[in-house]
């Protein structure tokens, strides 16, 4: 079976979709032939599709997204890249007030087929302005959110995102780009709102996103050695969110640990926790545990960043707190 990296999988998705549909264009800072994107996802695409369809922009995040939205409502299908997820904050008006609301506010007159790609995540010592995980900010009506953790999911979800007629926030993780995994050569897409059970288990459900999926799988393998069988679920999209798979798992295991790299307060874990409390509290045999970053900005120094980030040990500890 063919193995490629997450970065290559994303590139394949972009390339295949651009070959399929010539209205698809890419916009972003240094995504073209000079640099190929800060994380090299767009390598070779400007060369293949030309500067008209792969456009280097000025450093103008608000207008990168705004122009992408404006192009989306007039017949193009843009994929905008924001170099670091932290910089999405510069474009919040265009994302939350425009992209997310235009269809609704105009009574369904328009479709907004735009994808915004951006990398999140710490672990590479680039401090507080290049390391955040801000996905919870985008849990708002009118936006879909994809958070792939593996090369297979990255490719299938990105193709689905590009074909969707709605705005999709597509969040990648810096530490995932170099990960290798099985990606078939044939064409496939992954529907939104379908979680992936990355490891089956009986005693506890671990729901995790992005790079934390990998930490959680490693933790679960360690827990196996202690006789604790953990099920690891990756929702793959936060909006729509696959409640069914999660609730079925929690009903089976009776225990839930939520792992996310973002800061704890107001995070995705809080929302998932609320869903389980509302709909399956009687299935729980123990309190829910959240493993997340502390409520601080991301620190720079390796010792600080290591302390900050959730890891296998923190996940194992959380599981052992609630599994007898």
């Amino acid at each position: 079976m063919r193995e490629i990296t997450y970065r290559e999988a994303l590139r394949e998705a972009l390339r295949e979709e651009m070959l399929r549909d010539e209205t698809i264009i890419l916009l972003g800072e240094d995504i073209g032939r000079h640099w190929h994107g800060a994380f090299k996802v767009t390598q070779g695409l400007a060369e293949e599709f030309g500067n008209d369809r792969v456009r280097d922009t000025p450093i103008s995040e608000n207008t990168i997204i705004g122009a992408a939205v404006g192009a989306a409502i007039t017949g193009s299908r843009p994929v905008a890249e924001i170099m670091f997820g932290d910089l999405l904050t510069l474009a919040m008006d265009q994302i939350l007030n425009q992209a997310a609301k235009l269809r609704y506010m105009f009574g369904g007159q328009v479709k907004v087929p735009v994808v915004v790609r951006a990398p999140f995540g710490a672990g590479v010592n680039v401090a507080a302005h290049h390391s955040q995980s801000l996905e919870s900010l985008f849990l708002k009506p009118g936006l879909k959110i994809a958070v792939p953790s593996t090369p297979y999911d990255a490719k299938g979800l990105l193709k689905t995102a590009i074909r969707d007629d709605n705005p999709v926030m597509f969040f990648e993780h810096k530490l995932c780009y170099a990960l290798k995994g099985h990606v078939p050569e044939e064409n496939y897409t992954i529907p939104f709102g379908e979680a992936s059970i990355k490891k089956e288990g009986e005693d506890v459900t671990i729901v995790a996103t992005m790079y934390m999926v990998h930490k959680s799988i490693t933790a679960a393998e360690e827990l196996d050695k202690d006789g604790i069988s953990a099920e690891v679920i990756d929702p793959r999209t936060l909006a729509p969110f696959d409640k069914e798979t999660l609730l079925e798992s929690v009903e089976k295991t009776g225990r839930l640990v939520i792992v996310e790299e973002a800061t704890k307060t107001g995070g995705v874990g809080a929302e998932i926790s609320a869903v389980v409390c509302e709909e399956a509290i009687w299935a729980l045999d123990a309190p829910i545990r959240r493993v997340a970053a502390p409520d601080t900005p991301v620190p720079f120094s390796p010792t600080l960043e290591e302390f900050y980030l959730p890891n296998e040990k923190k996940i194992i500890d959380a599981v052992k707190e609630i599994v007898p």
């Binding site: 264009i25 122009a67 939205v69 007039t74 193009s76 008006d93």
Partner: peptide, 25 residues
Amino acid sequence: ILGATGVVGAGIPLAVGAGLSIQLK
């Protein structure tokens, strides 16, 4: 008519995007 925005100035990038679609077509 591409819409009327309540956020002052927010229509400018949208208009630029419409211009981009025209140029591409």
